[in-house]
Design a protein around this nucleic acid. Structure first.
Lengths: 214, 214
DNA sequence: GAACTTTAGAGAATATTTTCACAAAAAAAG
DNA sequence: CTTTTTTTGTGAAAATATTCTCTAAAGTTC
């Protein structure tokens, strides 16, 4: 079951959130691809195609059972699994992520936070106490953690990444704006906050130019 | 000069950061698409194609002049312009963004931060004092701001978005995990932290399945 | 200065992702 | 019970994005 487009996975998460809201409000028992798509800013065809990669979840002439579809998405996306995660970097962004409310429902559990700054080690962040980077390897091996978040300054990111991989980490979500050099078997995703914003300013400039030329 | 792929813009930011580092270290006067690409995890062909959307910046048989290419990217991406930005939401993520060091070099300046929580209004965040949401419209109009960041809880996002648009905002970067319903002429980009992480766990599961089936 | 090496730029070919269009199933209407 | 409406699932078509391939220019070697 591969060949699923990258963007499809991200949209499934968005569908899931909306369905969860519907279930909570008991608003609706059934929803069409048109309504679901419209609610989350996606075309109906896109919704159906996204789901079709994983099976048949709807009923022709009717739509999708909200509660069942939600459960199916949980299954597909692995929300019923527990994903222990370690986070390195107890700066502003690291602390924000520990407290981010959206992770837990998806099985994403930050179980430890590390920093090399003595002023931060020992501090409480969310429900966790910041540990020294020296403990990274021990914790990862003890708990069998495969997923890590890097939220350290740019200069430290590569070193931290190597340490994590050595300890057994298989996938890294890197918030530091720098490309990591790691073995091919390690999955790395980049969250580049500045580049997202720049895309916006770029498009805004484009729109201005177009408007001026009319 | 449209028809530029979305991912190209994001990669240009990444090239820029690397070139900036080179210039600072005075490491190199000239760089080939192969070396630049290799350094940031992109193919040489991709680097050349990305740049080719905007003109000719290199020299055959030689490569790109690092300092000139950096300047060209600044021009293309609008880093020499000033982009005043307002941020709504002085929670953990909002505070982290105000203090994020990567924005200023790209001309991105958060000039005001708002919240509706009386406990937060008046607090200092970075160099700014948190203002009441009631002042949003006045500040946006006074300063002619076109760009806004929404970092409020899900339930408040739509209301805040409408307020921003009414005040004249043309583009929104939305960190709240909810789809906004806004007029088509407003640009909206979503930064969905959970969905990025879920993509990672999903790919990790896929790899496990594949490994097991071998 | 001729032969060789390096490397950008660009068009063609691939690959990926999205949209379209329609058959078939379910429900509703008459 | 037949017709009409609704809506899924899917293969084909279109749009988007990436990689390949080759030409030509610049530099280097002999």
């Amino acid at each position: 079951m591969d060949g699923v487009p990258q963007p499809t996975i991200e949209r499934l998460v968005i569908y899931y959130r909306y369905l969860k809201k519907l279930v909570a409000h008991d608003d609706d028992k059934v929803i069409s691809s048109l309504d679901l798509g419209h609610s989350v800013g996606v075309s109906a065809a896109q919704v159906r195609k996204d789901l079709s990669y994983f099976g048949e979840f709807g009923c022709k002439g009717v739509g999708y059972n909200v509660s069942n579809l939600k459960k199916s998405l949980e299954q597909i996306l692995g929300f019923n699994q527990n994903w222990p995660i370690v986070l390195v970097g107890a700066g502003n962004i690291g602390r924000a992520l520990v407290n981010y409310p959206g992770f837990k429902v998806m099985g994403l559990n930050i179980i430890a936070i590390f920093d090399c700054d003595l002023d931060k080690i020992g501090n409480r962040v969310g429900g966790l106490i910041v540990k020294s980077n020296k403990e990274i390897e021990r914790v990862i091996k003890d708990k069998g953690v495969e997923l890590a978040i890097i939220a350290v300054p740019v200069d430290e990111a590569q070193g931290v990444a190597e340490k994590l991989v050595k300890a057994g980490i298989k996938a890294i979500w890197n918030i530091a704006p720098v490309t990591l050099k790691l073995p091919d078997n390690v999955l790395v995703y980049y969250e580049d906050l500045a580049s997202s914003l720049v895309t916006l300013t770029y498009r805004l400039s484009q729109k201005r130019l177009k408007a001026r030329s009319n």
